[in-house]
Write a protein that binds this DNA or RNA. Structure first.
Lengths: 112, 112
DNA sequence: TTCTATCCATAGACAATCTATATATTCATG
DNA sequence: CATGAATATATAGATTGTCTATGGATAGAA
C-alpha cells in the first residue's frame, strides 16, 4: 500500500460508478462528490481518477460527452451505461462479501 | 483489481498481524487460518503471503523462528512484536475509518 | 495582475498481488 | 513401492492500481 493511502485500493471504480447513479457528472465533480460524501476521508487524486475514467470508458461502463458546465467551462460528463449498472451491482456484492469476511477474521476471538 | 480478487488489496498485512494475535503460527498455518475464519472467502496465495511475511520481518513487526510442527516438518513460526501490535492497532483504526467513509458514499441517496 | 478554483490528461514511479515455478517432506492409497 | 495429496517455504516475473509530478487551459475574485 502507498505510504498515505487516500483510498482503499480496488474500490475506486465502484465509488465512481455509484456516484454516477445520482446524476451524470464530470471528473472533477465526481472527485468533489466522493470527497464530500465521505466527509473528506476519501480523496481521489487526478492521477487515479482520470486513468480510472479511461478504463471505464474502454470497458463501456460509462459514456462521456463534452458539454458546458453551469460556470461556462467545457467538461466531459460521464453517464452510467447498462453494463456499468450491472458491474456496479456485482462489485457492490463482492465488496460486501469481502468486508463481511474480513470482519470475521478481525473479530475472531483472541488467545485461546 | 485483479480479475478474480481473492483479497481486498491493502488488507493482507492487517489480516496476518491479527491472525498472529491468537498464537504464533507458520506461514502455511496463517493462510489456512485466514481461509477458514473467513469461510473460504479470503484466500491468501503463496506469492502474496511470503513476500508479505518478508516485509513484516524487515519492518520488525513479526519475528520468525524455525521450529518443528506437530507433524514433524520444519517450519518458520512467526510471533507478533510490540511494533507489530502497534501497527495492527493503527491499521485497524484506519481500516474502520475507510470502511465507514466508503459506506457513506455507497449509501448516499440515489437520483435527487 | 495574480491567485484560487475549476477542469482535463499523461508519464513515470512504486507497491501489492497474482501466476507460475521450484524444492522438499509426510502420509495415505493403490 | 509408486503415486499423489497435503504440508511447508520461497522466488521471479507479470500485471494492475494508485500516487507524484507535471503540463495545459479558463473563469472569477482580489
Amino acid at each position: 500500500m502507498a505510504r498515505k493511502p487516500e483510498l482503499l485500493p480496488g474500490t475506486l471504480d465502484m465509488l465512481i460508478l455509484k456516484t454516477l447513479t445520482r446524476a451524470p457528472l464530470h471528473g472533477y465533480g465526481i472527485a468533489l462528490s466522493i470527497k464530500r460524501t465521505s466527509d473528506d476521508v476519501l480523496t481521489v487524486e487526478e492521477g487515479s481518477l482520470y486513468p480510472a475514467l479511461q478504463r471505464l470508458l474502454l470497458q463501456e461502463r460509462v459514456k462521456g460527452e463534452w458539454k458546458m458546465t453551469d460556470t461556462g467551462r467545457r467538461a466531459r460528463f460521464y453517464t452510467l451505461t447498462a453494463a456499468g449498472r450491472k458491474q456496479l451491482k456485482l462489485e457492490l456484492s463482492q465488496f460486501d462479501q469481502m468486508i463481511a469476511a474480513i470482519g470475521r477474521v478481525l473479530r475472531d476471538p483472541q488467545e485461546a
